[in-house]
Amino acid sequence: MAGIGGGLYLQNVVGIPWITPIRGAIIVSLLAALILAQVSKNAGQREDSVIGALWAGGMSIGFLFIAITPGYFDPMSYLFGNILLISKEDISFVIVLDLIILAVVGIFYNKLVALCFDEEYTQLRGVHTRWLYLLLLCLTALTIVLLVRIVGIIMVIALLTLPAAIAGNIASGIRQMMALATLLSGLFIVSGLGVSFSFDLPSGSVIILIATVCYLLSLGLGGKQLRKQEKTGSSAESYQEKT
């Protein structure tokens, strides 16, 4: 929100035409990723605490810029998303970012998995985790900026977490989880847009609502799989004891 408000102010008041709200959001999101990486590594702060501070400060700065910018500007489309705001430039940016993410994941897959699950082990293996961690944060920040146009700032975190959470309850491995989460994200967006168009409802809210319902339904399936695994493990232990 700070980048969107700052871009709007610089474009309309200062007179810098190439700094659009979305480009301002990209700059600020990358800066926030850098701050998050430095503070969490050097100051020993919890990531969720730093994210909360950046979130609150960024939202406040963004609304202050919007307030001092002459003219009328409706922040609701950025808070809750509007598919009609997506331009050809946004689509091109999405395609380029997708290719970059696929390339990064393909090249650094093993290192990224090790970093996310056991950073200390990754460091002992001689991997420079600081730059890899910063790269992961920057890719996540750019992804968030793109999702703002579809579901908005308020609900963007839900679309990042719910498909992955559902896939985690169903998939049996990391690769399968990643592919399934990507597929679910696409299904939620397409189905949400269809429902919102048919009933004239906000697209972002409908997309997240569908994802939330599917997540709640997946909890039952995930619980059944967990009980099945526990039962299988108990049976194996009993067999070993008898043997």
Rank of each mutant, 00 (worst) to 15 (best):
145 V>G: 13
152 G>M: 07
181 A>E: 04
187 L>E: 11
177 M>L: 14
134 L>N: 03
162 L>D: 00
170 I>L: 15
143 T>P: 11
163 P>L: 01
136 L>C: 06
148 V>P: 14
167 A>W: 04
181 A>K: 02
186 G>N: 08
145 V>A: 12
165 A>F: 02
175 R>W: 10
174 I>Q: 07
140 T>N: 11
176 Q>N: 15
148 V>A: 11
127 V>F: 00
125 R>S: 12
166 I>G: 05
131 W>H: 05
167 A>M: 05
140 T>V: 11
127 V>A: 00
135 L>M: 11
131 W>R: 07
138 C>T: 05
176 Q>P: 09
144 I>G: 15
182 T>Y: 09
137 L>E: 01
171 A>M: 09
151 V>L: 13
183 L>A: 15
172 S>A: 12
161 T>C: 06
146 L>E: 13
143 T>Q: 15
168 G>Q: 08
132 L>R: 00
188 F>Q: 08
185 S>Q: 06
145 V>P: 14
135 L>T: 08
163 P>H: 01
163 P>N: 02
149 R>M: 14
169 N>H: 12
124 L>K: 10
169 N>Q: 11
171 A>E: 10
176 Q>R: 13
182 T>S: 15
158 A>L: 01
172 S>V: 09
147 L>P: 08
149 R>L: 15
181 A>R: 04
128 H>E: 04
137 L>G: 04
130 R>E: 07
129 T>H: 00
150 I>N: 07
131 W>A: 06
172 S>W: 10
130 R>G: 01
173 G>D: 15
147 L>A: 13
177 M>G: 12
163 P>Q: 01
132 L>F: 01
132 L>V: 01
160 L>H: 00
185 S>M: 06
127 V>Q: 00
128 H>R: 06
181 A>C: 06
168 G>R: 14
140 T>L: 14
159 L>G: 00
144 I>E: 12
176 Q>H: 13
181 A>N: 05
158 A>Y: 02
157 I>Q: 08
165 A>I: 00
141 A>Y: 05
170 I>H: 08
184 L>F: 12
175 R>D: 10
177 M>N: 11
148 V>Y: 15
157 I>R: 02
151 V>Q: 09
131 W>G: 01
179 A>C: 14
187 L>A: 15
164 A>S: 07
170 I>W: 13
139 L>Q: 06
181 A>Y: 04
144 I>R: 14
153 I>V: 15
142 L>G: 12
155 M>G: 03
137 L>I: 03
141 A>I: 03
123 Q>H: 08
170 I>A: 11
162 L>E: 00
176 Q>K: 14
176 Q>I: 06
124 L>I: 03
144 I>T: 14
160 L>M: 06
162 L>Q: 02
167 A>E: 07
169 N>V: 03
167 A>V: 03
125 R>I: 01
175 R>G: 13
144 I>M: 15
170 I>C: 10
